Amino acid sequence: MKLHYQSIGQGSPLVILHGLFGSADNWRGIAKALSSERQVISVDLRNHGRSFHHPQQTFDLMAEDLLNLLDDLSLPTIDLLGHSLGGKTAMQFTQNFINRVNRLIVVDIAPRQYIDEHSVIFKALLALDLSKFSSRTEVSEALSGTLPDPLVRQFLLLNLQKNDQEFNWRINLQALFCSYPGLLQSVEQNDAVEVPALFISGEKSNYVTDNDWQQIKSFYPNAEHVVIDNAGHWVHADQPDIFIEQVNRFLADD
């Protein structure tokens, strides 16, 4: 069971981990922009994108998945960037395999436990009988009562694919829903992580609070925190130019 990934550019490797309901495809524009000076490897986490489906999904398992990929690619060390669920996975990987990470970038997430904000999405998607729909527009309209934000629906429907004239979900919805309570839990932090770290958050997001930053600083003493104006949870999508500038600045700082 191997992770699907996309690679662009040459040089020192940067691995990107997407968030819940996402995939490497969501990061193509950012990866291309960052690839002028390095190899950028965008990964589909298990049960996402084109990666394998599995009934279990924990941070430790996803860290092991990434370790296996790095070994397959003969990459002894990497720079690692993760957003949201991918950010928690990146923190767990760094905690478990600190000798494999040169620099860590975490985007709009803290290592703490979060409240349930996605069960409504899972239930809305699982309730659909996709055999009844002939277009993405019909699926979007069916979801509009429960999920009124068109941008959220547009993002989720990136996971919709059509095989043999019938729609199905590319993500493993049932396994993700069953694993979701565990993904809300804190990252297992045992020791302080001495690697250089950059935590990027959006000014309009509430995912990283002042209290979170104090906790982050205790676990990552070499961390810096950048808040990007006029950006929400999807910082890289809301302010891509500033996001890319901050990542390049951090990775260029030797």
Results as ranks from 00 to 15, higher is better:
Ser7Asp: 08
Ser7Glu: 13
Gly9Tyr: 14
Ser12Gln: 13
Leu14Gly: 07
His18Asn: 15
Leu20Asn: 12
Leu20Gln: 13
Trp27Ala: 05
Arg28Tyr: 15
Ile30Asn: 10
Ile30Trp: 09
Ala31Asn: 12
Ala33Val: 14
Ser36His: 14
Glu37Ser: 15
Gln39Leu: 03
Val40Asn: 01
Val40Trp: 07
Val43Arg: 11
Asn47Trp: 04
Arg50Val: 08
Phe52His: 15
Gln56Ala: 10
Thr58Ser: 15
Leu61Asp: 02
Leu66Arg: 07
Asn68Lys: 12
Asp71Trp: 10
Asp71Pro: 09
Asp72Trp: 12
Ser74Glu: 13
Leu75Ile: 13
Leu75Gln: 07
Leu75Met: 11
Thr77Glu: 12
Ile78Tyr: 03
Asp79Val: 09
Leu80Ala: 02
Leu81Met: 15
Gly82Pro: 11
Ser84Met: 11
Phe97Pro: 04
Ile98Gln: 06
Ile98Trp: 00
Ile98Asn: 05
Asn99Phe: 05
Arg100Asp: 01
Asn102Ile: 14
Leu104Asp: 00
Asp108Ile: 05
Ile109Phe: 00
Ala110Cys: 06
Pro111Glu: 06
Ile115Pro: 08
Asp116Tyr: 02
Asp116His: 08
Asp116Met: 06
Val120Phe: 07
Ala124Pro: 10
Ala124Arg: 05
Leu125Phe: 01
Leu126Thr: 02
Asp129Pro: 03
Ser131Glu: 07
Ser134Cys: 03
Glu138Pro: 02
Glu141Gln: 10
Ala142Thr: 04
Leu143Pro: 12
Ser144Gly: 11
Thr146Leu: 05
Pro148Asp: 12
Leu151His: 15
Leu151Thr: 14
Val152Trp: 05
Leu156Trp: 07
Leu157His: 09
Leu158Ala: 13
Lys162Glu: 14
Lys162Tyr: 02
Gln165Val: 05
Asn168His: 14
Ile171Arg: 04
Gln174Trp: 00
Gln174Gly: 03
Ala175His: 06
Cys178His: 03
Ser179Trp: 00
Pro181Ile: 09
Asp191Gly: 03
Glu194Ser: 07
Val195Arg: 00
Pro196Trp: 03
Gly202Leu: 07
Gly202Arg: 02
Glu203His: 07
Glu203Phe: 12
Lys204Trp: 13
Asn206Gly: 15
Ile216Pro: 01
Ser218Pro: 04
Ser218Asp: 15
Ser218Arg: 15
Asn222Tyr: 09
Ala223Arg: 01
Val227Tyr: 01
Asn230Arg: 10
Ala231Glu: 09
Gly232Glu: 08
Trp234Phe: 11
Val235Thr: 10
Val235Ser: 00
Asp238Tyr: 13
Gln239Phe: 04
Gln239Cys: 11
Phe243Glu: 08
Ile244Cys: 05
Ile244Phe: 08
Glu245Gln: 13
Asn248Pro: 11
Asn248Trp: 01
Arg249Glu: 08
Leu251Asn: 12
Asp254His: 13
